[in-house]
Design a protein around this nucleic acid. Structure first.
Lengths: 161, 161
DNA sequence: GCAAGTATGCTGAAATTTCAACCGATCAGT
DNA sequence: ACTGATCGGTTGAAATTTCAGCATACTTGC
């Protein structure tokens, strides 16, 4: 095994700052979400994506890649949300294996109630703190990192370049 | 409650890309760590910090803020690492409440074994993919976000500005 | 049409993480 | 010294996440 170049001082600081910053940021956002709507970010992510989808439904498989969950985790999460009446798990006519998660009216109501506060948090903690230049950078950097780790087959779903 | 400005198209894409990118990146790094040393990133983070500290020991409290864990999580994690003989949980003479986690020789050995591969991953997936300009940006952005969410009292530990 | 391989999803057990409550030690004010 | 607040840490139970294995349905090549 080849000994890789170590991280220098500057790189180490960058890496640490990125790790700590993103973790604390997500923790904070999650806490607000919990307070406001009793949802973890994972659950909010699921519900929010469903709320924007046609028919308010998404194939489990696609939902999983969008949220970066593995299939098992999504199954458990959707089962829990279904137990609470926020989501339904419906079959797909054209493919017997596949199923879709579909937002119920109750789930939609919850998203509508939680979204404004959540978006406000994201704006306050992220976009209001960055210059337009930094926002462009963040987009480029994130896309680059994403390109390095994402499954190429699923990358086109992310919208226009 | 005030209705906050919604995220526009560009901001939404940036936010999604950041979330997905950072999550997939961490997942990937974690998977390699698991394969290579049977450690989650959380455990590696703890062990790695201890390995660089004087006496290979850090107060639980400080270790928790460094890793962005809450006290409870760190207690459980250290207990588990102690059960595996990688760490010791020792009292502090000057303060009867405090305790320190201290890396054992076995723990040190594990870090030494895992670190090169891990660092290589970080280099390959992060720094090799970013221009020097982008690396500077990432540092600035991370610091800005951090400043927005971190407890001010604990911010100075992060090294020189 | 069939067999092997792959895709999609689920399940149950184990591990981790969160949550609330607790305990003892220190500190601040009196 | 005494009291109440805060700090540092632990604990046990509940919730989430991971892991391995399973089952069913589609796909491909023969």
């Amino acid at each position: 095994m080849e000994e890789p170049r170590w991280l220098d001082e500057e790189e180490g600081q960058t890496w640490r700052s990125f790790l700590l910053g993103s973790r604390l940021l997500l923790d904070r956002i999650e806490r607000e979400l919990k307070q406001d709507a009793d949802l973890s970010f994972a659950y909010y992510d699921i519900l929010s994506r469903l709320s924007e989808a046609p028919e308010r439904a998404i194939r489990m498989c696609d939902l999983a890649s969008g949220c970066a969950f593995d299939r098992s985790r999504l199954s458990h999460a959707v089962a829990r949300l279904a137990r609470d009446g926020l989501v339904r798990n419906i079959p797909v006519e054209s493919d017997g294996r596949a199923r879709m998660a579909q937002l119920t009216d109750e789930g939609m109501e919850l998203v509508r109630r939680a979204a404004p506060e959540h978006v406000g948090q994201v704006r306050a903690l992220v976009f209001d703190r960055l210059t337009p230049e930094q926002q462009r950078s963040l987009r480029e950097i994130s896309d680059s990192l994403l390109a390095g780790v994402a499954d190429p087959r699923k990358l086109e779903v992310l919208g226009p370049t």
